[in-house]
């Protein structure tokens, strides 16, 4: 099996890649948010455009991802040992790929814009969790973490993703009925 952590790109480049991938997957929704904010607060039109929407759309999700990953990584590395650095590296790549897949998928919204908000709500967490799940399967067989400690790593990593998406869904549900 290919070891994706063998030839690592620098952390800064990886960070930029993840950020750009979040920008791409959040672009569609951010267009509307930015347009609304610009119209509501009378912000000049030249600031409210697709380019600004692209680069601002990924900011919050990227910061959230980077913060949570760093927060989870250190205690997890202490508990499980193993090559957690490679796990973290691969996770970043996985998330970047998942986001790019989502970006490509969202072009279908051009054909079916009516269903875009609904699909967005469901597809985003589903695709990301699928990719992260597949990646953890890869980690298991690659042996980055001892098998006896792998369960712990799986719960922490995939569980964190599921918890964040679950909270977002819950929040959205509450706001939609409020």
């Amino acid at each position: 099996m290919i070891d994706i952590a063998k030839r690592r790109m620098p952390t800064a480049v990886l960070g930029v890649l993840v950020y750009v991938s979040y920008c791409a997957s959040s672009w569609y929704a951010m267009r509307g948010n930015l347009a609304y904010v610009g119209q509501q607060y009378g912000i000049s039109g030249w600031l409210i455009n697709d380019v600004v929407a692209f680069f601002t759309g990924g900011l919050l999700p990227f910061l959230l991802f980077w913060f949570i990953t760093s927060f989870v990584y250190r205690p997890l590395a202490m508990k499980t040992g193993g090559d957690m650095l490679s796990v973290k590296y691969g996770l970043c790549l996985t998330v970047a790929v998942a986001n790019l897949v989502l970006f490509a998928f969202k072009f279908s919204y051009i054909a079916y814009p009516l269903y875009a908000p609904i699909v967005n709500i469901i597809v985003d967490p589903a695709v990301t969790l699928l990719f992260v799940g597949l990646y953890m399967w890869y980690v298991f067989y690659q042996g980055y973490v001892q098998r006896s400690r792998f369960g712990m790593a799986l719960v922490q990593i995939l569980g964190t993703f599921a918890a964040v998406y679950g909270l977002l869904a819950l929040f959205g549900m509450v706001m939609s009925v409020a």
Binding site: P117, I121, L158, L170
Partner: peptide, 30 residues
Amino acid sequence: LTEMWVWYMIALGVTLVVAATLILVYGRLV
């Protein structure tokens, strides 16, 4: 389509399914 709580509930369901699968897999691994 405008009953957004339905769609968020489905999304929540997806995460719960993942969480449940996680628990089962964890138990098996342990």
